[in-house]
């Protein structure tokens, strides 16, 4: 072993023993090209505000959409969104990269949503959000209408899904989480998470295919 390679055990790195010549740059070397979320969070914990901004820009829209679809209200989504990031900011000193950062982030978001639901019951009256309209320039009016209707049907179907199924579907779509990660975030076992996801996908598929079946 080289004299300048010393084993270090850092609580900030989950207590893992790492070998490196310059302990202060233990995580910095790993993110020369693509900074990992956890590494960015650790850098932010060390006072690098720019690292947080990168991290935030990666996840802000997905988290916002997750909360928006889950709560069904823009005001609620705004409140929970701020609360989620407030908690992430507060956790910067104690953060340990024991799991994937996305799992940690969505777990915080999920818990904030549950807390919000307990605080005020208004979420129970979910409203269908107005979809933002996008149209391709080369798209025929018929196709555009069909797409618009499909979006509307999907939106309604999403709203009518049971909360757990909608949560599982949104975690998959927005967070890109696996079934195991969904189970970890929602605090249920793998089979339950898988079942919820399957039911959700089946219902949404039926909603999309509905006009084709009827015609």
């Amino acid at each position: 072993m080289s004299a300048n390679l010393q084993p270090i055990a850092s609580p900030r790195h989950g207590g893992a023993i790492a070998l490196c010549s310059e302990p202060a740059l233990a995580y910095a070397q790993a993110m020369v090209h693509t900074p990992d979320d956890s590494a960015l969070m650790l850098r932010y914990g060390d006072g690098d505000v720019q690292a947080f901004e990168i991290l935030y820009r990666r996840h802000n829209d997905a988290i916002y959409r997750y909360l928006l679809r889950l709560s069904g209200h823009r005001d609620s989504a705004d409140d929970i969104f701020q609360e989620v990031w407030g908690k992430i900011i507060k956790a910067r000193k104690t953060y340990r990269p024991t799991a994937k950062f996305t799992t940690f982030l969505y777990r915080v978001a999920h818990n904030c949503f549950i807390d919000h639901v307990r605080r005020n019951k208004r979420h129970s009256n979910n409203t269908v959000l107005e979809p933002e309209l996008h149209s391709d320039p080369g798209e025929s009016p018929e196709t555009a209408t069909e797409r618009s209707l499909a979006r509307e049907r999907l939106e309604i179907a999403l709203t009518t899904l049971p909360e757990e199924q909608r949560d599982a579907f949104l975690l998959r779509e927005e967070g890109g989480l696996s079934v195991d990660q969904i189970a970890a975030v929602t605090g249920c076992n793998r089979e339950t998470a898988k079942s919820r996801l399957r039911y959700a996908v089946n219902k949404l598929r039926s909603a999309i295919d509905e006009p084709a079946e009827t015609s």
Binding site: F52, E53, Y56, Y64, R65, E132, H134, L158, R172, E174
Partner: peptide, 27 residues
């Protein structure tokens, strides 16, 4: 548990962005 058609339809639907004032507040 994963249907590409459903995912595509959802991607087409969910294109909301975080409001800029929220971005400013969080940052």
């Amino acid at each position: 548990d994963n249907d590409p058609r459903v995912s595509d339809a959802y991607r087409d639907l969910a294109s909301e962005k975080t409001p800029p004032e929220l971005d400013r507040k969080v940052l």
